[in-house]
Design a protein around this nucleic acid. Structure first.
Lengths: 165, 165
DNA sequence: GCAAACTCGGACTAATTGAGTCCTATATCC
DNA sequence: GGATATAGGACTCAATTAGTCCGAGTTTGC
């Protein structure tokens, strides 16, 4: 869990790069690939998917290329990554979709769905501008204490709870 | 990304089940597997890994079985899941470990590491008791608004930032 | 009209990872 | 010694991921 697919990484790089462009500028897939040292064909495919997701626009022809539809601070991290993550969610059952033979009597579905909901909410609320920006994307340049015992520090948990409500 | 491996799901089920036991009770792997409708051999393997992670204890022999080392509210969600997730982290480079040929000049490493750090902190702070409990694990029984446009709602983001600091 | 520089998108292959099984060894209790 | 457990390595099969290949459609400039 957690690991971004390589396509997602490439997509984030490309979107970041396009976000640094001037309002009327655009770049062809080949340039985006070469600058970022990414495979050309794959980069082209990724850009197609980003277009279908409504994140970039394209124009064909000689001086064609790609540009962002909206500026970085109006693009959610989750939206960039979503097309490249097959199962976006902690488990397949979180959409309420059936398919899990254990669905009824499953004591895990509820907790997993709750946790998933919480996560998605935060990632939807994280803009690319904040994600990519130097300072404090989620305000987490401060080190969080990491209990070595596996014992849970309930004070931090408490703050999470307060915030979420 | 995000999706728990099936082994993790099984581990969560098993730990949850063991957590409901009385202080001197224990259950053999076969019972845990059959009750949860899980593959027997695989369940046995998972329990071994949980033992190596210091989450369960085992005793061999005829009336042997497994039991939790600590109660559910002292076991972190992250610790249960960690042994079964190959790459626990948003990307391979978040440990500062090299191996990424793009390491220098990579404009993504910092943001990804920050986001990862934030996530891990929260999952380390989430106890199994809270995760699994009925009410409000992370306080998220309330519905979060889900902007349909992909536009980022900055007010929620604001609350995240305040909380994290 | 034609060629060059692009995007578009399906089909295909190879590598990696995940899930699950099988088999053998070892410990404990009666 | 036999029954019931855990311990753990080796293995197979399936699914996913990463990446490549190739042909087609579009726009611009000469």
């Amino acid at each position: 869990m957690w690991k971004l697919s390589r396509k997602s990484e490439y997509a984030l790089m490309v979107v970041q790069r396009l976000g640094a462009l001037g309002p009327s500028e655009q770049l062809p897939a080949s340039v985006l690939a070469d600058d970022g040292d990414l495979p050309r064909d794959l980069t082209a495919k990724i850009l197609q998917e980003l277009r279908q997701a409504g994140i970039v626009q394209s124009s064909r022809g000689v001086a064609g290329g790609y540009r962002l539809v909206r500026p970085l601070d109006s693009v959610a991290f989750l939206d960039v990554v979503r097309p490249f993550e097959e199962h976006l969610g902690l488990a397949d059952c979180v959409d309420g979709d059936g398919g899990c033979k254990r669905a009824e009597g499953c004591t895990l579905q509820g907790p997993v769905a709750r946790l998933n909901h919480w996560l998605m909410g935060h990632l939807r609320g994280l803009s690319m501008a904040e994600f990519v920006g130097p300072g404090r994307g989620l305000g987490l340049t401060v080190d969080m204490p990491q209990p070595s015992t596996g014992r849970v520090s309930s004070d931090r948990l408490g703050s999470v709870r307060r915030n979420a409500l």
